[in-house]
């Protein structure tokens, strides 16, 4: 997992969270170890059992009014105690001005103290969202990610099998490229994988024989997407007579990325095969299944019905000796 420092959090979020650094700038390089946020109300009251010192601490109106009610000596004691736990940083909401003692202690202990205009609830929600994303498990995959009719399809397969060419053809037909060659995949929540490109890569792609092209410049913004949930993996393989491919589509195959189960379709590639048309059909078929329809299953049911009907007719005629 990547290490995230308080400085990265601050640089990244200062506009969105309307943060101002008041003191403790020397502690900006300390590392955030938890993806959670907490209000240390109980800690301020002196209860430090189960206190999660690794979390970002948010002080709201409630906590600040309690601190203000204390005598100067008691105030220093309470703040000193909180800071002694080596917390990563403190954020005061609603632009409430913290007492001078707090600034002094934060500088001395090298623990950054921020103030934000946002309300406590808003602040905690937004910090949580960002931390979830920053701490999300991540993996890079050699493949191509395309949004086909709104279905996120991840193409994988050996170098040179035609992933980029397939994506280019799809873009020509109005679908949208997310990333080619290096796809960054992040796990958001238990079963959602989000794919995106890397900063440097953008929406460039290499087409053998042509070189590096820029899809965004060539086809415009309608041809690209910054990120997309992965709904299907399409694995391209070289056509080999021996291999056994899915012929009916009754049994779904799955693959696992970062512990998330994703349906996978294996497509044998051979000359004259129109991967684009197949891709569009895979996407539409996936949507039908999401809506609760299974074409393969309904065909098999029809077949079974026909067999049953014929058998009944035959049985009837067999006993008909008129």
């Amino acid at each position: 997992m990547e290490k995230i420092t308080v400085r990265e959090f601050f640089d990244n979020r200062k506009e969105v969270l309307e943060l101002t650094l008041l003191s403790g700038a020397d502690g900006l390089d300390s590392i955030l170890e938890s993806r959670e946020v907490q209000r240390p109300s109980m800690a301020l009251m002196g209860w430090y059992e189960e206190f999660a010192r690794e979390r970002i601490q948010v002080l709201g109106r409630n906590e600040m009014s309690y601190l203000q009610s204390l005598s100067p000596d008691k105030l220093v004691e309470v703040i000193e105690k909180l800071f002694s736990y080596n917390i990563p940083c403190i954020i005061v909401s609603k632009n409430i001005v913290p007492p001078p003692a707090m600034l002094e202690i934060s500088d001395r202990r090298k623990i950054p103290l921020f103030v934000s205009r946002l309300s406590t609830v808003e602040l905690m929600n937004k910090i949580s969202l960002w931390l979830d994303n920053a701490f999300a498990p991540k993996v890079y995959i050699h493949g191509t990610m395309v949004d086909v009719y709104g279905v996120g399809m991840l193409y994988t397969g050996k170098s040179g099998i035609g992933k980029s060419e397939c994506a280019l053809d799809l873009v020509e037909r109005g679908h949208r490229l997310v990333a080619d060659d290096v796809v960054e995949i992040k796990k958001h929540s238990e079963n959602v994988l989000i794919a995106s490109g890397t900063n440097l890569l953008g929406h460039h792609m290499e087409i053998r024989g042509v070189g590096i092209i820029d899809i965004e410049r060539l086809f415009g913004v309608r041809a690209i997407r910054m990120q997309k949930r992965i709904e299907l993996e399409v694995r391209l393989v070289i056509w080999e007579e021996l291999e056994d491919y899915e012929r009916l589509g009754l049994e779904k195959q799955f693959t696992t990325i970062l512990g998330v189960k994703i349906p996978i379709v294996t497509i044998p590639v051979s000359p004259g095969k129109n991967l684009t048309a197949i891709s569009e059909v895979i996407a539409m078929n996936h949507m039908l299944e999401v809506f609760g329809e299974n074409p393969a299953m309904s065909f098999v049911e029809r077949l079974n019905e026909e067999i049953r009907r014929k058998k009944n007719l035959r049985d009837y005629l067999k006993n008909d000796f008129e």
Binding site: E2, H142, D181, V182, L200, L201, E206
Partner: peptide, 17 residues
């Protein structure tokens, strides 16, 4: 760093920068 790429793909190698 934390990025792994296929050495047979030009874009992959390039984005390592």
């Amino acid at each position: 760093d934390d990025i792994e790429v296929n050495a047979k793909s030009i874009m992959g190698v390039l984005i390592l920068a």
